[in-house]
Every structure is written in C-alpha cells, then in structure tokens.
Design a protein around this nucleic acid. Structure first.
Lengths: 214, 214
DNA sequence: TGTAATGTTTACCAATCGGTCAAATTATCC
DNA sequence: GGATAATTTGACCGATTGGTAAACATTACA
C-alpha cells in the first residue's frame, strides 16, 4: 500500500526529497507568475517533468503545494531584516539592508513575485503569518530605529514607513521588472541596472536619515 | 439580427454605455484581485449582476474585456506624471506628485492592483504600451529632473530610479495593503496611515533632493 | 403601432480544471 | 532472489472553464 508523503516511516526517502524539490521549484515558476488561482496543476507538472498523478502523490492538493512553497520561502525572505543589527552602526546597517534586499530582488525574483501575488489577492493563505511573526519582527526592528533616532544617531522618521519604503523600492526591481526594463530601454536594461538602483537607493535613504547639523 | 457592440450603427446605445460600464466595474473588481488567468467570466458576470452570455454580448471574449479595462485605466493612471510641470518649482512639483500618487493608491487601489498583476505576469497584454507611450512620458519627465539637477535646483540623482522609487513607495500602499495593515496593527490601520505615509514620503524624497550647502 | 434592431436567456458544447483509482512498475531490504 | 513498500502511470470522474446557437424579449424609431 502506498502512503503518500511517508506518513508511515516518518522519514523521507531520497526520492521524496529530490522530487519534492523539483516540484516546489516548478511550482515557484508557475505560482510566481500566475498566482494561486491562475496556476494549474497540469502546468506545474509539465514544468516539473512528471505526470499529474505523480505530482499529486507528493502533494495531495494544489493548496498543500502552495502552502509548502510559502512556508519554505517566507523564512528566507525575512533573513535580511532579521540580520538588521541593533548594535551596529545605523548608517551601515541600513545601507547593507538595502543592498541585501536588492540582491534578493535580483537573485530571487520569483520568490518576490510569489509574495506579491499573495498580497495582491489579500493574503488569503498567509494572513496569520503577517499578523504574527512578521509584525513581531518589524515591531522589534522599528523599535531599534526609533531608539537610534531618539539617541540622535539618525534623523527622526516613522520607522514603519521607512521599512515599507525599503521593501517597496527594492522589491519593485523584481516585481515590476518588465516595466523597469521597458522604461530604461534596451541599452540600460543590463544587469547594471541593479547597481544603479543600489547607488540611488543608498543615497536616497542614507542621506535622508543623516542628521542635519544646520 | 443581433450584432454585438454596435458593429453596424457605429454608435453606442444608452444601454450599451450603461452595461459596459457595469461590466468593466465588475471586471476591475475581479481582475485586480486574481489577475487575468485567475479570473473567470462567470465570476465577473455574477459581480456585474448579469448572465454570462449577456456579458459576452458586450465583450466577446475575456481578453477583450481585459483589454478595454487596461486601456481605460492606463490613461488615468499616468495623469499625475503628465501633470508634472517642468516650469514649476522642483520641490513642490515632486511633493505634489507624491501626494497625488498616494491619493490614487488610496482612492483607486483596484486600478493599482490591476497593473501590478499585469506586471507580475510579465505584462503580456501591455508591453507595447510600456515601451511606447509610457517610456516616452518617463523619458520626458526624466529630462526635466535632470535639467533641474544641472541647474543646481535639486541634488544630483538618477531621475529614472527616482521615478521608480516614487511609483513603488506610493503604490505599495495599494498593492500591499493587507501587509501594511497587518504590520501596523489594528490601531494604526485607519485611513490615517495614508497621511502618515504622505508625511514620511515627502520628507524622504524632498529632503533627499534638497541641495546640501555644506 | 408595427417592425427592425437591440438586448437577454436557456440550453448547450468541447476543453480543461482539481483530483481519484487501480494497476503496473521500481526501489529497498532481508 | 523474493517479499514488501514506494513510486509511477493511464484511465477516468464530476465540476468548471471560455464560449456558442438560437429562441425569446425588449427597445427605438418611422
């Protein structure tokens, strides 16, 4: 008797690990572009190079697949913010946070689009994570920023909206990639656009937060 | 003989105008949340309060409906950028551009999400508009900003990435509304968040562009 | 008021959707 | 090598998809 997803042995087979990896990779391809409802199991199966029933052997439903994908990606996605160090130098912390977020937009655009799709749909699958872990993490880091401002290390500003603006500006280069490339034109659409963006954003945020001694 | 969409008289009936309006309104509701592929004609018909064949009498295909919607919304959406005045005061022009974009995010979030969905999918339906009219408009305004910088009216910065960052930060409050509200928590999720955002963003961009006389 | 054009509905279609099932195949372990 | 468990497949299911055909109802206009 075949029991899907190792319900019996509790231990995952080599084949299971490999196939689940392949499937989630394919699912990321599809979900990130078409969102949950716009994606089909057939399409994911085709990208994964296996038959639909075979895919459904590993993930019993489309939702289970999406769920597993979100879970896996969510942790990685928040890594840069988690690395934000309260004891570091404010300017360099913010600078490196921007750089890391921008690198992720460049290197993991599908992950960014997966979340963007989820947000556009009203986060029906992750709203709990937003209100729970995400909010806690942001609250914590916002407090750090607020403390820096209080100590006169950076200019006063709303730390939540600061974080929002760093998120939005950096992820924009992943989520709106087509638009960015179309507007920049063919000559400026090389990978150099990420360095231009990094230069610009670091200037924007760091200069804006520098204390004005006037 | 019934010929859809007044192919014969070339003039639109009162009923046609009304129904097409109702349909596009419903289509905006649905497309903006689920994207093109994730939306169904049945769903739009239900929201529009009419039968599917009746809806298909006005728009022969799902694509035609989407096309009409995009066309109608695109023009309005670029209005703030078009209003960007080369002869105005740089600081107040940028300030009011931010304010207008933020007002649109607040008042027309569905329109914002419609485009966001389209971008995430690689703009399969509007890529021409991006490379054509949009790029032209941005090129024009970028030149204005560049001229201001050259004249010493504002600090030097990449005008394209400046525009991108204004787009992304403002539209974030429409597209990622769920996340924003979840992170801000119930107490700060009232409509006041737009005013907080406006204050923050005006400070961020205007201070960042102010010339430093040090 | 009659009539032609416009608008609406019911019934339907083939294709695709998410998902199941049982049989066949392959891997694992003694 | 054989038993057993894990994996894969093709055939299939009911529901939903985008869209059509034709009958029916309503409107506009002479």
């Amino acid at each position: 008797m075949a029991i899907p997803r190792a319900a019996k042995t509790q231990r995952r087979t080599r084949i299971q690990e490999e196939k689940e990896e392949v499937i989630l990779e394919a699912a990321l391809d599809v979900f990130s572009v078409h969102g949950f409802r716009g994606s089909t199991i057939d399409q994911i199966a085709e990208v994964a190079g296996m038959s639909k029933p075979n895919l459904l052997y590993y993930f019993r439903t489309k939702e289970a697949m999406h769920r597993a994908l979100i879970d896996r990606v969510l942790f990685t996605w928040l890594e840069p913010l988690r690395a934000f160090d309260a004891n570091g130098n404010p300017e360099s912390e913010i600078r490196s946070y921007i750089r890391r977020k921008l690198e992720m937009a460049r290197d993991f655009p599908r992950e960014s689009r997966l979340f963007a799709n989820e947000m556009l749909q009203g986060a029906p699958h992750v709203e709990d994570e937003l209100r729970g872990p995400l909010k806690s993490l942001v609250d914590e880091k916002a407090e750090v920023i607020r403390a820096w401002a209080k100590a006169g290390k950076i200019a006063k500003c709303d730390p939540y909206h600061l974080i929002f603006s760093i998120w939005s500006t950096t992820q924009h280069y992943a989520d709106f990639d087509v638009q960015v490339r179309a507007v920049l034109g063919q000559e400026h659409s090389g990978e150099g656009r990420f360095e231009d963006a990094a230069r610009y954003l670091e200037q924007l945020f760091v200069d804006g937060l520098r204390m004005r001694h006037t």
